[in-house]
Simulated assay, not measured.
Amino acid sequence: MGRKVLVLNQDYSALSVCSVPKAFLLVYMQKADMVAHSPTHVLRTVSEAYPMPTVVRLRRYIHLPYRGVMMTRQNIFKRDGNRCQYCGTNDNLTLDHVLPKSRGGKTNWDNLATACKRCNSRKGDYTPEEAAMPLRQRPFRPSFLMFIRDLSGAVDEGWLPYLGAKEAAY
């Protein structure tokens, strides 16, 4: 059961993604309401069948400070589609500082790009322009909603109205 469920705050804003068992438990314990369920899947016990949740809404509002996406190696790889931003391969990936650290480049979302070991080594201590290696996409900081919608893997079509997407592009 590798399916995921979108968890909404009481005001219907996207809060997180969790597993189906966790979402079912929230509904069963009356901490959340089921907003949408799968038309084709059910959860079965020995004597009962329950609809499988795809979107749940918490009954109490959760106050959270600004939610940003944590800058981790895996999240940068996800943002860049697990592809080298110079040649497009997906083998032997590593992180590259677009503006090298030796030239004052910082370790942040806007300066880190996914690169294969070959391209990272070839670029060396140069900028992409100096090395004649243009980036396929400039590094950027993804928003929390964008990260859930575009980068968290397969997104259920029922989630799109809550993630700011008008139509399914998946």
Rank of each mutant, 00 (worst) to 15 (best):
R60A: 15
V98N: 00
Q137T: 12
L15F: 02
S121E: 07
E157V: 14
L160N: 10
G88P: 01
R59Q: 13
T45Q: 00
M70F: 02
V98E: 01
R67L: 05
M71C: 06
K31S: 10
P39D: 12
T45F: 01
P51K: 01
R79Y: 07
A154R: 15
Q10Y: 07
T127N: 10
G104E: 07
R103A: 11
L163G: 12
G88Q: 05
V55F: 03
S152L: 03
K22W: 03
A168W: 05
E130T: 03
K31L: 15
L26V: 03
S47D: 13
H63S: 11
E48N: 15
K117Q: 13
Q85G: 03
M34A: 07
D96N: 08
N92R: 14
Y28W: 11
E48Y: 12
R73I: 04
Q137P: 00
V35N: 03
L93K: 09
C116Q: 04
N90G: 11
S47R: 13
Y170A: 10
V155G: 02
K117S: 15
P65T: 08
D80T: 13
A49S: 15
K4N: 09
T54Q: 01
T72I: 04
K166M: 14
T89I: 04
R3F: 07
K78L: 08
D125H: 05
D110H: 14
R79L: 09
R103L: 15
D125Q: 13
R67K: 12
V98C: 06
G153Q: 02
Y86E: 06
T54H: 01
N92F: 09
A115V: 08
V7D: 01
A165R: 15
T54E: 06
R3L: 09
D33H: 05
A168D: 12
N120K: 02
L15M: 13
A165G: 06
A169L: 10
F147P: 04
L43F: 00
L25Q: 14
Q30T: 13
P142T: 10
V35T: 05
V5Q: 05
P100A: 09
N92E: 13
V35C: 02
D150M: 07
A154Q: 10
G2N: 13
N82D: 10
L95K: 11
A132P: 02
W109M: 00
I62K: 08
G81S: 11
S152A: 13
V46R: 13
L145I: 15
V155M: 00
A113H: 03
R3H: 14
N92G: 07
R57G: 10
A154V: 11
G2T: 12
V17G: 00
N92P: 03
H63Q: 11
G2Q: 14
R103M: 14
L6Y: 09
R103Q: 15
G105T: 04
M34C: 13
P39K: 14
C119E: 06
V17I: 15
T114H: 08
R60E: 15
